[in-house]
Write a protein that binds this DNA or RNA. Structure first.
Lengths: 207, 207
DNA sequence: ATTTACTAACCGGACGGTCGGTAGAATTGT
DNA sequence: ACAATTCTACCGACCGTCCGGTTAGTAAAT
């Protein structure tokens, strides 16, 4: 059935990424602990023993999914946004790109926030360290806005967590088939984060 | 050791609330699925069989904790806020009171958002229905702000989810021993939700 | 004598993971 | 060209462990 020769350097073969994707979906639906290896095996048309031909352990599978998700986050959100010099535009880019990643089909990115406890301490540390870099990047952007006097008087640590809260809650309520499109929602979240809920006429603008 | 006679109508006796509290803590730390009944039993100095003298099942214990949490949410956040006529003051009250509930010691309230999947469908529906009432209450408040022209042009559904995101993310990063006190953080979140991150001079204020 | 508040021992079942084996494709020896 | 060998991609059956939950019994209080 295979039409192409196996390439010399192929870090992930055909079946493995299929397993990762399906596993991510099932972990997302049922939770890591509530998902059995037989569940995953059945979803990719294998027996449990057959599944273990491709992976080392359940925890290892989770770790692989999370590493994949971190790479997506870095290449699709962090790296493109880093290139933007203006901090306000950069902040908008972060929210938009991260929002897009969270609403598109791939479920790996949501597992990244919900199933950290499933990892062994050493692996958990690795993921947490990479997340920390992202956090510092966002807070740094807010700090820059502060020095340019474009930020209201808010604590940038709390503000960063507030942004993440808004974003990371998104996959829990977003329904792709719903009336609100993901682009609508992302635009709204950008507005809310930057401008808040209330009309300017009520808030005293500070220079 | 018991100093008081058992009251005639005592829906929760001494030991039971101790079990609920400890169970909520452990569920919060380890997750529902990853917590065994022996874990909980040991934490309240009982054997597993002894624990089952007080509770019906693991799922029932979770349901009891969630009902307790919903009651707290209703009496500490929803009911007091409902009495506030001005929608802006009401919104601030909701954020403050909910934030306070999430940062105080009691972990039941965080289980409410993180462990819904542990419930059987019928119980889950019950909790979800009560949550829905809360959601509609908050969105209704935003709608009122809209008709009073005090709201920026944002979709109130998305805005409500954004507020919940900010709030419900709080227990994941808040450390009681940290530099930021819970009251500091709650005040900041109120500012961010109502006024946003950016300085007014950059945003065109609409009347 | 009965009820309350437990415990030690146990049960069926599901789980993560392993093992021995094998059909078929690919590779090699001649 | 073809047989012998090796390798890839799997499967059925099984293992030890732990889990949620039960049962029979008991010491102390009422």
């Amino acid at each position: 059935m295979k039409t192409s020769k196996k390439p010399a350097i192929a870090p992930e073969c055909d079946r493995t990424i299929d397993i990762y994707t399906k596993a991510a979906e099932i972990f997302h639906e049922q939770g890591f602990d509530a998902t059995s290896m037989s569940n995953i095996a059945a979803a990719v048309d294998l027996t449990k023993a057959g599944l273990y031909y491709y992976i080392e352990s359940k925890e290892d599978l989770l770790f692989a999914i999370m590493n994949y998700a971190m790479e997506r986050l870095e290449t699709m959100v962090i790296e493109p946004s880093r290139e933007i010099a203006d901090p306000e535009a950069r902040l908008r880019s972060i929210i938009e790109r991260h929002g897009r990643l969270l609403t598109e089909g791939n479920k790996a990115i949501t597992i990244l926030t919900d199933e950290i406890e499933g990892l062994k301490p050493k692996h958990r540390r690795q993921i947490l360290d990479r997340k920390r870099v992202y956090f510092d990047f966002v807070r740094g952007t807010l700090d820059e806005l502060g020095t340019k006097n474009e930020l209201r008087e808010v604590n940038t640590t709390v503000a960063t967590f507030a942004i993440f809260g808004m974003l990371l809650w998104l996959p829990r309520w977003f329904k792709p088939a719903g009336r609100l499109t993901s682009e609508d929602i992302i635009a709204e979240l950008g507005k809310i984060a930057t401008g808040g809920l209330l009309n300017g006429s009520h808030e005293a603008a500070r220079a």
